[in-house]
Design a binder for these strands. Structure first.
Lengths: 209, 209, 209, 209
DNA sequence: TATGAATGAGACTTCATTCAT
DNA sequence: AATGAATGAAGTCTCATTCAT
């Protein structure tokens, strides 16, 4: 009972976290519309009105979900800075594969948000797209590292292709389940991207000469 | 009287079509949960109760949307049966790129359905996954055509990789808009897949010897 | 029981009227904000969602209340067209007094709406102000009838003063209850307005000479 | 330490004032129901719970608004005690006109409260009605001053009529805005009331003889 | 073949208020 | 003297669906 009264005591951070945990779970299963405040309230144990103490509205809540989840995800990243470019790409590829396997839930949410087109854009979608854009920039830099001769368009193409492969393989895993060997496919994808880089570099050189 | 009943039946078809048109638009913008019967009713001009005359429930309506859309999409397909395997793959790749560009709406819907995980799976999702599985089979056959030596696992991997690329590039186009040159990326992807086929064939042969 | 099923039958006009009746009662007691859809629902026996079949939203409902009530009120009016101007004014004055006594409820609502100033103006307020403006025009015409020499400004002043008296006496009756003899006060007011007309006519003539 | 407690008490007063300022603004715009504690909290910058430290509940807050506002309003009043009765009435009339122009906000609130009829009467309404009753008594005394022969009923009528005119003209100004020349109308009203006094005195004398 | 009307459940959100600190 | 956090009730409105005609 003393416990109860203590739990009832103001502990904002903990409550906020509980709400975010519940919302993350639900949103990554059912998407934006499927995430009802009532459901979140039931899952986290706090009344619906308490959710509105911590978040302005549903949109704000789901944006916070994206923000926190990607923050954590990105902080678990380590950019390799030694070895041949080939090795470094291989290392990054493996990291991505591992990350996709480990936390698929909010990635699913991100993709769902990205695919939706509604009259009033949710802030959450904007937030996801920003994180994505940052990742794209890093990919581009890695590509430039590997093939310094490439022009801007080719670098963009390469980065886009690399990310598209990651997205597509993630979806394949989501749909195919255990029948999909994600590490093997990512290994393949990594090598493909390196080949593409070389191929694009060649054609660039040809055009120049 | 026969005339009347025929006109009525004709109107019935027309109404059904109007409803499906509206539902397709909305569902491909907002996904399953975001598609409300009221919204469809407003968009197509018919009262909500009329929608229930044509469709058993919301799930049935969206399944019908998927069904009709994929029917149309697949009928626009022509499988090339002459030329070198390389040419045939190139031809198919271009067809896919064109198809993605021309009817992105229900593909978006399909992906959204595929990504969701809800307690009661909608029939619409099942329907999309079936069509997708068929496409996968065709891809596998094309791969076998091109590299007859490949074993089952390699063929699956190849087909999965090919489709993943298509999904990923579609998403890239959806997000990136005009800044994404889809045909060029699909051209790159086609060549990558052929390379992958060769590479996998080699490693298969190596393992055998 | 047959009765119940028959009552459940579609009868839109009757339901609409029941809703409006309930809303009129409540709104004229408690004003715009005090009129909750739930309360209206309970008072009229229909579920809240049925109210939204007949009216777009709360604003629309209360605007309809004003519209219907003032429509009825104005249609009960008869403009006298014989006798001396003095007699005609006296007749009109008595009519107004009677009308205020008989249907004070929605007049109270109108005044409450008129006094409010909120960021987003309710349509209901606009509607009330329009009816009021029409009444003001009629008063002005009556004044012109009685004192044709008066200039525009004087006519406006007279009409405004006449209406202000009516408003003020209505409020006095609302607050004072039985201790306020409304007919006597309106009789006084009518004579005052006629005096004012003469007085203004005089001063107009003085200025001219 | 004494310093601290004194500063705290001073801050207490300041906070109370800030809350009252915000509440006055909002309540005079939106009435009793439209004034939410949350809104007041946002407008004054203090948390909602602080409002409950200074005021028992919402009713208490709005009653305090009325109390403070009327206190200020009345203290700006000076009762003229020289000149002819006619001059004194003219002077008072002008004072009222000026007061209505200068602080319309809480008068609007008062009228809104006076017009509402709710199951549980707010204290705020009672408070407004009391102040109003006092004003009515003063008006009656002024009338008696001017026409000492009048009987009780006539005096009441006169005071009621005078106040009704003020209320009505205030409303006219609120609705009509700049197109309403309040001082001119009050001047007219003042003269009308004097005439009424004389007229009533005459008829009283007639009845007596 | 179609539809006007109804309906209970549940959506998001705000309300006035309380309480421990 | 003040406040961060919580809370149940109630607010407006939309949902999918049904039913009599």
């Amino acid at each position: 009972m003393a416990d109860t009264s203590r739990r009832r005591r103001a502990n904002g951070e903990a409550s906020r976290a509980k709400i975010l945990d519940a919302a993350t779970e639900i949103a990554s299963e059912r998407g934006y519309e499927g995430t009802s405040i009532n459901l979140v309230s039931k899952r986290c144990g706090l009344p619906a009105s308490s959710i509105y103490w911590h978040f302005a509205d549903k949109d704000d809540l789901i944006a916070a979900v994206i923000e926190r989840s990607f923050g954590r995800w990105l902080s678990a990243w380590s950019v390799p800075d030694d070895g041949t470019p080939r090795d470094r790409v291989a290392e990054m590829t493996m990291q991505v594969a591992k990350a996709l396997l480990e936390s698929p839930d909010f990635l699913r949410l991100g993709l769902m948000l990205a695919l939706e087109r509604r009259p009033v854009e949710p802030r959450a979608r904007e937030m996801y797209l920003q994180v994505r854009a940052q990742a794209q920039i890093q990919l581009r830099e890695a590509a430039m590292d590997m093939s310094p001769d490439l022009d801007a368009a080719a670098l963009d193409q390469l980065a886009t292709y690399a990310m598209a492969g990651a997205d597509g393989l993630f979806i394949a895993k989501e749909i195919g389940g255990d029948s999909v060997d994600l590490p093997a496919l990512f290994d393949l994808h990594g090598r493909m991207v390196i080949d593409a880089a070389l191929r694009l570099a060649e054609s660039t050189r040809d055009e120049d000469s």
